[in-house]
Amino acid sequence: MESVLLKIAASHMRPLLIVLSVVVLYRGHNEPGGGFIGGLMLGSAFILYAMAYGVKKTQKSIFFDPVNLTGLGLLIALASGLPAILMGEIFMTGQWITLFSNTFFELKLGTPLLFDVGVYFTVAGMLMLVMFSILEE
C-alpha cells in the first residue's frame, strides 16, 4: 500500500501527535485528558507512521522496543506508590510537593501525575506491541 499522501501526512503528524499526547497527559488532571487517552494518542502516532512506512522502518526510527515501553510504564506506575510507604502511609496514597506558588500561578507535582505517566507509557506500549505484531503479518 504505497501512498505519498499518507507518507507525507504521517511524517508531519507524528511529532505533532507526540506533543499533543504529552499535552493531553498533563492537562488530564484538571481538564479532559489523562494518561489513558494520551497513551492511545502516542501509540496512534507510531501506528500511523507504521501504516505509511511499514513496521520495520518504524521500529528502526524509534529507539525503544514496545515491550520495554510497556514494562517501563508498569514500573513507573508501581514506583509511584512507593513514596507513600516511605512516608508511613498506605501504598499508593497520593503525595504532593508544591514547587512554587503565588497568587497567579501554582505548580504542584504529585505521585498521581507520575502514576498517570506510567499509565501513558503502558497503554502506548501495549498498543504498539499489538498493532505492530498484527501489521507485520
Binding site: 488532571h29 484538571n30 481538564e31 514494562g71 506506575a77 502514576f115 497503554v123 506500549g125 498498543l127
Partner: peptide, 29 residues
C-alpha cells in the same frame, strides 16, 4: 488537587484498580 473527577478517580482514589487494569492489558498484549 484535581478538577477532572474522572481522572482523579483513575489515578488517585482508585489507583490500585488502574494498576491492576494496566497490568492486565500488558499481559494481554
Amino acid at each position: 488537587y484535581g478538577r477532572n473527577i474522572v481522572n482523579v478517580i483513575l489515578v488517585d482514589f482508585r489507583a490500585l484498580d488502574t494498576l491492576g487494569e494496566i497490568s492486565v492489558i500488558s499481559i494481554a498484549a
